[in-house]
Design a protein around this nucleic acid. Structure first.
Lengths: 215, 215
DNA sequence: CGGACGGTGCGGGTTTTCCCGTACGCCACT
DNA sequence: AGTGGCGTACGGGAAAACCCGCACCGTCCG
């Protein structure tokens, strides 16, 4: 089963180059080319290729908008979109990935990665350029943080988690079988140890340091 | 300049296979092999290879621990560690990446990706297996959410961001040049629209939906 | 042994938040 | 011009959170 690919890039030379690289792969076939974003969306909706390779910089509609149109949240039958660009700017990366892209490639990536990205997208996976991945990982890793200046006791960790979930002191007291006053005491102690001034900042700290799980 | 690689895996056949694949690349050279985690750490610290390929499942010290020892937060001169595994379990992925790994490969990844991962790591970048990347992206993308049941006004968004940062109503009033009472009204309206009962839950909602940026 | 220390638990006074009601300008509708 | 909806703005009373001080009980240590 060959993988059908749509190319979208305003520069003819880039399209030709990518077409050559891809046609070299026995399992990949370029079925259409678009020279701007509007054409890309139209062709993609009509042909429904397995994978769309779209450039970020394009006339009329940029690659991010194209991605949102074809794969964004709320789209009925989303297509697999891999975004390609020359510049790995943060705004592009996040815009593309949050817009539903399942790949982000820099043009300086080798031909091997281009083909792999297409195969990954077609298989329902996603491949992101190594340099971009690196920056994504830096965001995933809180550098080193995770523990407060002064260590929290086990009881205090429980209270932190409850506070971060938006529980009131009364609810926490009921959950932990302690009195309301005790909860207040713990919250106070936590604030001191974390160096924050109210419970919302406790919650913010907890979210930032991934003490609570992201949904 | 050839890239020096350390292989760490308890299964001899896996080591042989990876060595064959890598030696096939002109720019990569396997300089050492380790059969367990302790040996991997010792060899890596002595030889300081450009890239360490470590299996997750190993005797004595697992791959995650090895990663933390060689590249974790707090390590003086961290090495580039790429973690390899047969099973792409969430705990492995997050453990490895948060432990400082600059790559995460499934063993079913093709030889092309193995070589690319080594090159990426050596260049200071990171390559993650497509299927794993896909799951990481799902965490990055709030699926479809991001907007509340009822839409917030522009003013309310400002208040949401301020609340999420842990500001008190008085501080918000000063920042936005409105009265304390007005802030109260906005917070109330936001709570109604989001369907939450207190400001901490507003903050939690904001963090979960990435209204506030992760540091 | 006495005594300092830290975790845990409790109560009361002050500050902040929460939850109502109210009001005014703006815009669309008919 | 009337009218209803919406965003924005304000005030006051009830509720919760915040910040003290205090006490009990283990452990560690001179």
């Amino acid at each position: 089963m060959t993988i059908s690919v749509l190319l979208a890039d305003d520069q003819a030379m880039v399209r030709s180059g990518m077409r050559l690289l891809l046609e070299d792969q026995p399992d990949i076939r370029v079925v259409a080319e678009a020279v701007d974003g509007v054409e890309a969306v139209a062709l993609a909706r009509r042909l429904r290729p397995d994978v769309c390779l779209v450039d970020v910089r394009m006339p009329r509609l940029d690659g991010i908008e194209v991605t949102r149109a074809l794969a964004g949240p709320g789209v009925a039958r989303p297509l697999r979109v891999v975004v390609v660009t020359t510049f790995d700017l943060d705004e592009y990366v996040y815009g593309a990935l949050r817009g539903g892209a399942v790949g982000f490639l820099l043009k300086d990536a080798g031909p091997a990665l281009l083909a792999e990205a297409v195969r990954a997208a077609s298989a329902g996976d996603a491949l992101v350029s190594p340099s971009v991945t690196m920056r994504l990982l830096r965001h995933l890793t809180p550098a080193s943080a995770a523990q407060p200046a002064r260590p929290l006791s086990e009881r205090e960790w429980e209270v932190v988690r409850a506070v971060a979930k938006g529980r009131t002191n009364a609810e926490i007291a009921a959950e932990l079988f302690i009195s309301l006053s005790t909860v207040k005491g713990h919250v106070s102690g936590i604030q001191t140890k974390l160096g924050v001034r109210n419970r919302v900042q406790i919650a913010a700290w907890a979210w930032e340091n991934r003490v609570v799980t992201q949904s």
